[in-house]
């Protein structure tokens, strides 16, 4: 059963991005709950220790120490619990190769990190209308 409050999990080792993302998401929809982790290994542990998915949607940085975004995405996609959970790759990269790789690994969306709040809110609007309204 889906929780009534929607939950977003951001895995990113960059604290500035936690701040931007938090502001953007809160302005976009204050009812959404945000969970953060800046350590990819702990994030994976947190995601898999319970019997239900930790969040309704996961935002995942691509270049991280320890487990990289691609490794983490691979691990998430092989876990049955997360088969239907949208995973958004959230990265500074805008490279075509990264986009293709993310898609092949099962990312639902590839989002190049924006440079303004307006842009971020527009991106979130785009993504949420796709991944949630489709269901």
């Amino acid at each position: 059963m889906k929780p009534t409050t929607k939950r977003v999990f951001l895995i990113d080792d960059d604290e500035d991005d936690h701040l931007f993302f938090g502001i953007g998401l809160n302005e976009f929809d204050p009812s959404i709950e945000i969970l953060y982790d800046n350590d990819s290994e702990t994030a994976l542990r947190r995601m898999t220790e319970k019997r239900d998915p930790l969040a309704d949607i996961v935002f995942l940085d691509w270049n991280m120490p320890k487990l990289s975004g691609r490794q983490l995405l691979g691990a998430i996609r092989t876990n049955n619990m997360y088969k239907e959970v949208p995973v958004i790759v959230f990265t500074t990269s805008s490279s075509y190769e990264d986009k293709v790789e993310a898609q092949e690994l099962g990312a639902s969306y590839f989002l190049s990190k924006p440079s303004s709040l307006k842009e971020l809110k527009r991106n979130l609007q785009d993504i949420f209308s796709h991944v949630w309204d489709d269901k």
Binding site: D16, F20, I23, T92, S115, S116, K118
Partner: peptide, 20 residues
């Protein structure tokens, strides 16, 4: 170039935020 992108994006984000 790749490493310059990261701080630059933050400069843009913060200056945009101050401006807005």
């Amino acid at each position: 170039a790749h490493d310059m992108k990261e701080p630059l994006r933050k400069i843009r984000f913060y200056t945009n935020m101050v401006f807005d």
